[in-house]
């Protein structure tokens, strides 16, 4: 039984992290209708910038947690202004291909500058060690990452549903024409929302830095899992991303415990099953599908 609890806790810890990582993807799709394939690369950039801040400027984890999202927000704004906005009116496939191409450029650029074997990063002081209760234990950092992620997801959820800004953004996505007719400048909100989504990807990267290999390719595999998360949760749904994040974390942990070789396949079996029963995902709106 204690083993089951152990795996459940590890699954939840991973799930919180998946939820935060997928959140930006969900926000950008929800508001702009853009399937941002470069989300994995932006996650990677977040981790790489954190490692560079530490190595070159001795700025630690806590500073990176604030500075990196700001930098990535700027990067997202540039990306939207220079590239993404020109393709918004066209078939979503165009932006998908654009962001896919951007991913290749970002990954190769980081490889050129920082090589392929990765950058070092350590657990921040005070978050090392484990918490042990009976025979069950969890690393302090995993608990921190999970709680931090959940709090942030809740904050974003509240921002979108309980504030004026959130209301405008949601209205703009539901019906841009009528929102415009009410005297709201819809276009003004598109850029910051895109930047915000990219900033979230960067933040997830910082959170990953102490526990994962920081390499140019770190996002390439991860983006696949994130797509599974947002598809299961329902494209564009923030609540969906959070619930599906935990679901995927748990399924993966149980997979490892009881059928290790199939741990990752299980996630995609889950995804296929959800799509078959509910094509728009667990919390997706029907018209999205």
């Amino acid at each position: 039984m204690s083993e089951f609890i152990q795996y459940t806790l590890q699954g939840l810890a991973a799930g919180g992290f998946y939820a935060l990582s997928a959140l930006g993807l969900a926000v950008i799709f929800g508001v702009l209708g853009v399937v941002n394939f470069s989300h994995g690369a932006c996650y990677m950039l977040g981790a790489v910038i954190a490692a560079v801040l530490l190595a070159e400027l001795s700025l630690g984890f806590w500073v990176a947690l604030v500075v990196v999202p700001v930098i990535m927000f700027g990067f997202g704004v540039l990306m939207e202004r220079l590239l993404v906005q020109w393709l918004l009116a066209l078939d979503p496939l165009y932006n998908f291909l654009l962001t896919f191409g951007l991913t290749l450029i970002l990954v190769e650029a980081v490889k050129l500058r920082y090589g392929v074997s990765g950058l070092p990063y350590e657990i921040p002081a005070g978050l090392g060690g484990q918490v042990t209760v009976g025979s069950v234990n969890l690393s302090v950092y995993a608990i921190f990452a999970c709680v931090f992620s959940v709090v942030l997801c809740l904050a974003v959820g509240l921002l979108m549903t309980r504030t004026r800004i959130g209301m405008i953004v949601r209205a703009a996505t539901e019906d841009p024409g009528r929102t415009r007719a009410l005297g709201i400048n819809v276009g003004r909100w598109v850029t910051p929302v895109f930047g915000f989504g990219i900033a979230l990807a960067g933040l997830a990267g910082v959170l990953a830095a102490p526990t994962r290999a920081i390499t140019a390719e770190m996002g390439s595999n991860f983006i696949i899992i994130l797509f599974a998360v947002v598809v299961i949760g329902g494209l564009g749904s923030i609540l969906g991303a959070v619930v599906a994040g935990f679901l995927v974390g748990l399924v993966e942990a149980y997979g490892v415990a009881y059928a290790p070789a199939y741990a990752q396949i299980v996630i995609f079996v889950l995804m296929a099953a959800v799509i078959l029963v509910r094509p728009s995902g667990l919390f997706g709106r029907e018209e999205v599908a």
């Binding site: 152990q6 590890q10 991973a14 770190m218 595999n221 290790p260």
Partner: peptide, 20 residues
Amino acid sequence: SIASPFPSDNFATFITKAGE
């Protein structure tokens, strides 16, 4: 002998299992 998917980023549960 535990097989892990390749590539993989989350080894926490594999490590728990390897400690059994």
